[in-house]
């Protein structure tokens, strides 16, 4: 399956979705002008992956900032991951970033996927 690899910019996150190497990562800042357009390739990739996923998937989300339009799309991403067996979300937050910790907790309450919380 093709690898989705997007370099991070000052307003968009770095994204690596690599089935072969088992790397699934969204990290950095997410405040694009058009979040729906930005996340569409990610949703498309997950849709494809869900047809033949790995036995287990650790999906890492390590965001420094995200805007509210992105939060809606992050929920869409999580919803797309929800039906994949063996899925775990690894939610990273900076150790003094209570808002990002709370954001992760809220997302975990909105979808039926196990979340693991880690600080950096």
């Amino acid at each position: 399956m093709e690898i989705l690899n997007l370099e991070g910019t000052e307003d968009t996150p770095k994204i690596i979705l690599d089935k072969g190497n088992g790397i699934f990562e969204i990290s950095g800042r997410s405040l694009p002008e058009d979040s729906a357009e930005f996340y569409q390739p990610v949703l498309d990739w997950i849709d494809e992956y869900s047809k033949d996923p790995n036995d287990s998937t650790d999906f890492m989300i390590k965001l420094e900032y995200f805007n509210t339009a992105s939060s809606k799309l992050i929920l869409d991403v999580l919803s797309a991951l929800e039906d994949i067996d063996g899925m775990t979300i690894i939610w990273y937050f900076h150790e003094d970033d209570e808002d990002m910790e709370e954001a992760g907790e809220e997302f975990s309450e909105l979808v039926e996927i196990p979340f693991e919380f880690k600080t950096y």
């Binding site: 002008e33 979040s35 729906a36 809606k72 929920l75 809220e106 909105l110």
Partner: peptide, 22 residues
């Protein structure tokens, strides 16, 4: 916040309707 994020779609303008709440 949770109610809006669950129940609304992104507007044509690209907003999630969550800005003020956030």
């Amino acid at each position: 916040y949770k109610d809006i994020i669950k129940n609304t779609q992104i507007s044509d303008k690209g907003g999630a309707g969550l800005g003020f709440v956030d």
